[in-house]
Write a protein that binds this DNA or RNA. Sequence first.
DNA 1: ACATGGATTCGCT
DNA 2: GCGAATCCATGTT
Length: 199
Amino acid sequence: MKLKGDFFERDVVIVARELLGGYFVHKTKQGRLVGKIVETEAYGDADDLASHARFGPTPRNQIMFGPPGALYVYMIYGIFNLTNIVCGKEGSASAILIRAAEIIEGREIIKANIEQSKFAKSDGKLATGPGKFSLAFNIDRTLNGLDITKSQQIYIEQIGENQEPDVVTTTRIGVDYAKHSKELPWRFYLRNNPFVSRR
DNA sequence: ACATGGATTCGCT
DNA sequence: GCGAATCCATGTT
């Protein structure tokens, strides 16, 4: 079933873990793209020195302060877009970075999407990293603010699993600048899944 | 107005 | 392990 607003209106760290195994769905003009989420990171409010919210509300990050279930998409290094989902109550700032997915449906379309970029390669690995995930699933900044709990175009399905997933909890990638916050165990991935971006 | 540097990826060493 | 590619948000002057 599709995830609704109350799922995202909770602590970002809890939601980040529970998102693992969910199916990210984007219905594009070319066809349906579906990926199983295998790696996430949680980003918090002003106390989290790795989060865009650390400076308070700004034009770029204002969507993080809005209602849960919204997409937060921004450009990094002038090259890639990164896909996040806003969590917590309206007025609080937090979001989950989707870092990697296992392709379930739309592989050929996704390959073509990735080949459009000068800086990503489609051979072998398709959505193994946040930049490649966004490319693969056609997520760009025009979708910033889209409510995935109401959209028919983009949503996340929770699949009923027989058993609890085996989750690895560790520190986040690429946040060495974040002083003490870089030690927070806010990265989650499915153990032994080959599509996780790094060990 | 200006300077800085990043929630990345790939290729070369 | 390191540097380049390349845009723009943010903090500082």
